[in-house]
Simulated scan of single mutants.
Amino acid sequence: MNSRRNFLQKITASALAWPLLSSATQASSINAYNRTYQSQPLRVAIMGLGSYGTRVAEAMQTCKMAKLTGVISGTPSKIKDWQSKYNIPEKNCYNYENFDRIKDNPDIDAVYIITPNALHHPQTLRVAKAGKHVICEKPMAINAKEGKEMVDACKNAKVHLLIGYRMHFEPKTLEIVRMRKAGEMGKILFFEGLSGFKIGDPNQWRLNPKLSGGGAMMDIGIYSINGARYMIGEDPIWVTAQETKNNREKFKDGIDETIQFQLGFPSGAVASCLSTYSMNNLDSFFLNGDNGYAKLQPATGYGPIQGRTHKGELTQPHVTHQTLQMDEMAAIILQGKKPEVPVNGEEGVKDMQIIDAIFQAVKTGKKVDLKV
């Protein structure tokens, strides 16, 4: 298995699709997908034409409010392939040296950055300077300092900065958030997040600390960090963490193999999470309150997500995550829509602050206080 992308695809490939409900309530949860959009769509250039960039491009073919209109890549052959496949004109194609020219291209409103983590910061600053909206894949940067600089740059340029949190639009996930907000689980006490897979190719960029900024925590552990926050509905105030490294040849300095971490929240709720590059079949969330619970497994794969609560199975319909994400993000940018769970740059910075604190806790062996 070569990457998190493959893991997320395979872990849900064998999942049985759950019954689709046709009620108005279910339909409204994917309203952006179903509605016919009459105005000019959000015109998007994808930067980074790898496996996930390809997945996003394919998903955008059925979007109602977002349209793929440009590409940015360092590989000329990929650009040619995408031009042919997605009917992208030559004038909307750029490489990493000249993409600042998008400033003068009215066919591009936003750029979705899907490149190695360490490139997100400089590329976001350049896109913002060009006056285009930024959608940045997670993690948004390699530390909170860079993330804050990205937020500031986009604010100064008066453009949106959105982070690729596709689970923030996923119907079953949002149903659990709704139940928690409505008090249907009572006081929230505990969250468990398990995020991991066995990573393959030892030469890939994810195992290069200069490009990734870290190992499993940056790549897959961030799902449990982010999930703990939107499931509990609070930001943590402390963290403790322990690292296990069994393969130091593959997981060199700066690349975490396995980290167990614990989060404490203002209400007294706690979270226990695991992030790993050395174990398969880890993709689950569990939320426990004094009056009920919710369980997702798979929790963050490409779908269909499966889950249940104390009230029974979750049966919200599955829609391709990236299709829903891009339509909803278009609505945020074009219409000022407020998502149930935020996806702005500030949310990305909070996750980076927590990751910074986890690494500090691993290094020091001490509890680290947080203020995010």
Rank of each mutant, 00 (worst) to 15 (best):
R55A: 10
E340L: 15
A118N: 09
G221I: 12
A110S: 14
A130D: 10
E58H: 04
N344R: 08
I333L: 06
T364N: 06
E328G: 01
T69Q: 05
A118G: 05
Q262W: 14
G50H: 07
K132G: 10
T115N: 06
V349G: 11
T173W: 04
C154M: 08
W205E: 09
N87F: 05
K85G: 04
L296P: 05
C273Q: 06
Y230K: 10
D256K: 03
G53F: 04
Q123E: 05
F261C: 09
T320M: 11
A182D: 11
E175T: 11
V343M: 06
N281C: 11
I354K: 04
P209Y: 02
S14A: 15
F359K: 10
N6M: 06
H321P: 03
W238I: 03
G301E: 06
P41C: 12
Q9I: 15
T54D: 07
E313F: 08
I333V: 14
R126T: 12
P41H: 07
T244W: 07
F251P: 02
P76W: 09
E340M: 15
A17V: 14
D327R: 00
Y223E: 00
I102C: 01
N226I: 13
V127S: 01
Q306I: 14
T173P: 01
M60I: 09
I358G: 02
I102V: 12
G254L: 06
H168R: 13
R43L: 02
A130S: 11
P76Y: 03
A118M: 10
I225Q: 11
W18M: 11
G196S: 13
M231N: 08
D283W: 03
G183Y: 10
L324R: 01
I199H: 07
A45R: 02
M352Y: 11
K366A: 13
T300V: 05
D235Q: 05
L296D: 06
E97I: 03
N288C: 07
G147F: 04
N208G: 10
K187G: 15
L274Q: 11
A13S: 13
E340C: 04
Y33K: 08
Q61C: 12
S22C: 12
I188L: 15
E90I: 09
D369Q: 14
S73G: 13
Q297C: 11
A32I: 02
R43D: 00
I237G: 01
R5Y: 15
A157Y: 11
F285A: 12
F99E: 09
C136E: 07
Q360A: 14
